[in-house]
Design a protein around this nucleic acid. Structure first.
Lengths: 370, 370
DNA sequence: CTGAAAGCGCTTACAG
DNA sequence: CTGAAAGCGCTTACAG
């Protein structure tokens, strides 16, 4: 049976009035008591078997396993959580699940969590008000288990401040939180240094200065620059070159494009560092439309090194970030908190690395000479 | 306190031997019995209040609310789940969380789930063996609640077949499953028709035929073409033009690049349809390196219309897919299954739409004439 | 409108 | 090596 909606297809025995109610075999699932009865032991012994307790006679163990298989028994994680008081789960609080950096971090968390037998929940912070954040935090806390905050942006940082202190929590951040150290275990990579090095690299190539298309700030007041912006400024200051105002207002290619349109109009702009690769992609587009060649007229360097960046035309120079590693390490930190006996130590996170490709070079480096 | 690892920073009171153990205020959380005591009522009444039962005297209700606030009571979702037998949770089973189509689907699920008060878990299928899939399915099932399978690929389709029939489950798929209808409620959009239309469009422009860079097949045997491939073939057949073999082996830009390198060598290739935008991006790159202009020498059309595609140079023609809507509808289907009383009906999903940009045009349509 | 009982499916001591 | 008891924090009938 198939029903056509505009643009959509839906199928299944659940369509209203279409057929019998779902016969999903709704008899009650087997419990350890059922298994015990079939195996001829007490349910306590069943508990020992499913928890791999050593003190069970092999023969008994086999009988229990046979009963488990026969009944298709699956232990209820809910009951385990309630009885043991431990929830072996982590909720990732994030403002976004599709941007490369966020999605890759989530992937890292998931890999590490799965290996540790933790389930992974995602809580999206899509509402930038105190009450919206409180709702999301409450929903995440209610589920039990620990929280992992992706603090790459304003909302993430704000959520971190609103999590009750008795809830175990760790953070993957974009920075060392400047003057305000996090109250929680945290991991981050050196965006600051990486941005400084990328900027210094462009300066070393001979550019008079470097412009910056910023990602939104993570500090609630929006006053403090991101570590990436700070690193860029520092490099300019160290070199004693002019320090243009950063531009950009958003995370996506559209925001990059809009910033790029303005930059393209200024002939003095010969080098642009971007807060992420999507932004850089938009800048590249704006430059192209304005007839300014890359890297001939303008050099562009992105941030994050998303997988497609190497295949752009021109291929994009970018600062590679180990988001997956960050996610893995953040989970390990949380695990230390909720399960100190595990002995889990954070896996190494790769240092940010400037990957040079076609989009950057010396000023005026045109195929046909200067 | 900060510790430097290669490339990583870690902070927090959890560093081995660094400071006192975490003082996360570990006194036992308040239960409804604690609240009852403080409010001077029975715990049963507390249960009524937190469940918004009508039959509670306003005055009593206020006392309970005051006690809840005073104790910072948070109801345990675990206990609710165990006692009520309902898990208001959904696990998204997917082989990937970072590719655009998958991430956007997950986002749609999350939006709809949050609105319904369901928590969202993610289970990643990263192991393409039966036992690997079984482990992932078991982990997802153990958590309780429903399952939502993203069946865009081989692994997702295989997982679907291995989910116990008594577990509520719905599917977001790329196709109507051809000859084998799903045993589960499913949503999908018309990739098949969309691919046929995109191909017909290119043919209508005057191209002698259209080549196809395929995404991997979703059918376990890998024999049956994806709906996208089938739509492409159908358009060629309908038009009575030559039908080249599809190429491509992967999902990412690298796979697209490799396929593009081969296509670029064949001067007969003037139009290429790609199974997704990442693939198209790689094809664009390969064409560029081979000195073949787009769309002058070769037209390229992608699939999915990922957000950056509009800002590529040349901007990419693509088939826009409503993945978020698909995720939303899939959740609604699952909700109908586990919670028939909710009256939730699947929201509309947008029809795939061919978005024409710079990367496609008539053959030989060069700025400087033919 | 409110309370006392039983039970969800397990685990954690405590006996033997 | 195995069993009987108590309890995790709630909800769902059942009384009053």
């Amino acid at each position: 049976m198939t029903v056509h909606n505009p643009g959509m297809h839906v199928t299944g025995h659940t369509r209203a009035g279409a057929s019998a109610p779902p016969d999903t075999g709704q008899r009650r699932a087997a419990s350890i008591r059922d298994v015990a009865r079939v195996a001829g032991v007490s349910y306590q012994t069943v508990s020992r078997v499913i928890n791999d307790h050593p003190s069970v006679r092999p023969e008994t163990r086999d009988r229990v396993h046979a009963a488990i298989a026969e009944l298709g028994f699956r232990r209820s994680a809910t009951a385990v959580a309630l009885a043991s008081g431990q929830v072996r789960a982590v909720t990732v609080l994030t403002s976004n699940t599709t941007l490369y950096g966020y999605a890759a971090t989530l992937q890292g968390v998931e890999e590490e969590a799965r290996a540790a037998g933790f389930s992974v929940r995602v809580g999206v912070l899509d509402n930038d008000t105190d009450s919206g954040i409180d709702r999301a935090v409450a929903a995440a806390v209610d589920g039990g288990g620990g929280l992992l905050v992706i603090g790459y942006d304003r909302i993430g940082a704000a959520a971190l401040d609103r999590i009750p202190l008795d809830v175990p929590c760790a953070v993957a951040a974009e920075n060392p939180f400047g003057s305000r150290p996090p109250r929680r275990p945290a991991v981050w990579t050196d965006d600051h240094i990486a941005a400084r090095e990328a900027t210094a690299h462009l300066l070393g190539l001979g550019h008079a200065t470097v412009h910056y298309v910023a990602i939104p700030s993570s500090s609630p007041g929006s006053r403090r620059p991101t570590p990436r912006a700070a690193g860029w400024q520092e490099a300019l200051r160290d070199a004693g070159v002019p320090r243009p105002k950063p531009c950009g207002k958003g995370w996506d290619s559209r925001a990059g494009y809009e910033a790029g349109v303005k930059l393209a109009k200024d002939p003095a702009v010969t080098a642009v560092l971007c807060g992420n690769d999507d932004l850089a992609l938009g800048v590249l587009r704006a430059l192209h439309e304005a007839g300014r060649s890359v890297p001939g007229d303008v050099s562009v360097i992105g941030f994050d090194d998303a997988p497609p960046s190497a295949y752009l035309t021109p291929s994009l120079s970018s600062v590679r970030m180990d988001f997956t590693g960050l996610g893995r390490a953040a989970f390990a930190l949380l695990r230390q908190l909720v399960d100190p006996g595990s002995g889990e130590t954070p896996p190494p996170v790769a240092r940010p690395e400037l990957v040079l490709r076609e989009s950057s070079g010396p000023p005026g480096d045109r195929p046909s000479g200067n």
